[in-house]
Amino acid sequence: MSIQHFRVALIPFFAAFCLPVFAHPETLVKVKDAEDQLGARVGYIELDLNSGKILESFRPEERFPMMSTFKVLLCGAVLSRVDAGQEQLGRRIHYSQNDLVEYSPVTEKHLTDGMTVRELCSAAITMSDNTAANLLLTTIGGPKELTAFLHNMGDHVTRLDRWEPELNEAIPNDERDTTMPAAMATTLRKLLTGELLTLASRQQLIDWMEADKVAGPLLRSALPAGWFIADKSGAGERGSRGIIAALGPDGKPSRIVVIYTTGSQATMDERNRQIAEIGASLIKHW
């Protein structure tokens, strides 16, 4: 067993022997301040990774656009098919120029040779490549099948209805392509620590998230040296922004954090800054 596999296998073990965790309302004060600064709703939840206990939450059962955070769930569904012998990570998928959609920095470079399922998941999570996500959605049967996968996990809230990039439209009061912070946090925890996926697939999923290259201005910008984070960000229309993450000190994750916002007129930089400040408060009061 590799060191990384050992780390993920012992996530519940280490967490069980940690000192009790206590909620700190100071972080919620910052979440509410972010709402004021952005002029928009902000949803927040913080779960203990081992027990699933909610440590703090704000608007945990209000719907927010998922945006690209759905790509972690998508690759979880792909990995479940791999575990069941219905898919192979090494299978190569070929596609054409007509398949390319807006923001496809990886797939646009491989029109000639195609990409493997493993490479597509890596591109979808680490670079948020939209064509990679659409190609992977095709392998599982489309958005409705991802929703069905989530329902089978016990998540009857999260739903995907459309493809990239239309799913980022974020129309107010439109339930399409949305989740709730509580539902997303619980589902992410199941994917990373539950028995739904094999140990190898859980490790692969967290490795992809740990290698995320496009979430630097968010929670990662607030992390002290030595902290662990595996995350996936999302951005959408109407001032929408979000991030889902597993993080913790001492090089291992111990909490799940989900943050979503929508309806702001603020710039992307300002949305990023507010999420980073929430992260800084979380870490300060850990």
Rank of each mutant, 00 (worst) to 15 (best):
I3N: 14
I3S: 10
Q4Y: 13
F6N: 10
F6R: 09
I11S: 07
F14V: 11
F14T: 11
A16Q: 12
F17I: 11
C18R: 01
P20W: 02
P25E: 12
T27K: 04
L28R: 08
L28Q: 08
V29I: 14
K30S: 10
K32I: 11
K32N: 10
D33C: 15
A34C: 10
E35V: 04
D36N: 13
D36Y: 13
A40P: 03
V42Q: 01
Y44G: 02
D48F: 03
L49N: 05
S51K: 09
G52C: 04
K53E: 12
K53G: 11
L55C: 08
E56A: 12
S57H: 12
S57K: 12
F58V: 08
E62L: 07
E62R: 06
F64A: 01
F64Y: 06
P65L: 03
M66N: 02
M67T: 11
K71R: 01
L73I: 14
R81A: 10
A84Y: 10
Q88F: 13
H94T: 14
L100H: 04
Y103R: 04
P105N: 05
P105G: 04
K109D: 12
K109I: 11
T112A: 13
G114K: 04
V117F: 04
R118Y: 15
L120M: 11
C121D: 00
A123K: 02
A124L: 04
A124V: 08
D129E: 01
D129S: 01
G141S: 06
P143Q: 06
P143H: 08
E145L: 09
L146V: 11
A148T: 14
H151Q: 13
N152C: 11
M153D: 04
M153P: 01
G154W: 04
D155G: 01
D155V: 01
H156T: 12
T158N: 01
T158M: 03
L160W: 02
L167D: 03
D177W: 01
T178V: 05
T178G: 03
M180W: 11
A182F: 15
T187V: 08
K190I: 09
K190R: 14
L191I: 10
L196T: 15
L197W: 03
L197M: 09
R202L: 05
Q203I: 11
I206Q: 12
I206G: 09
D207G: 14
W208T: 03
M209C: 06
E210P: 00
G216C: 08
P217Y: 08
P217A: 14
L219F: 09
A222Y: 09
A225R: 13
K232Y: 00
G234M: 05
A235I: 04
A235D: 02
G239V: 01
S240M: 03
S240C: 08
I243F: 05
I243W: 04
A246I: 13
D250C: 12
K252Q: 11
R255H: 05
V257W: 02
V258D: 01
I259N: 01
Y260F: 15
T262F: 05
D269N: 12
E270N: 08
E270T: 14
I275G: 01
E277W: 06
E277D: 12
A280D: 14
L282S: 06
H285C: 11
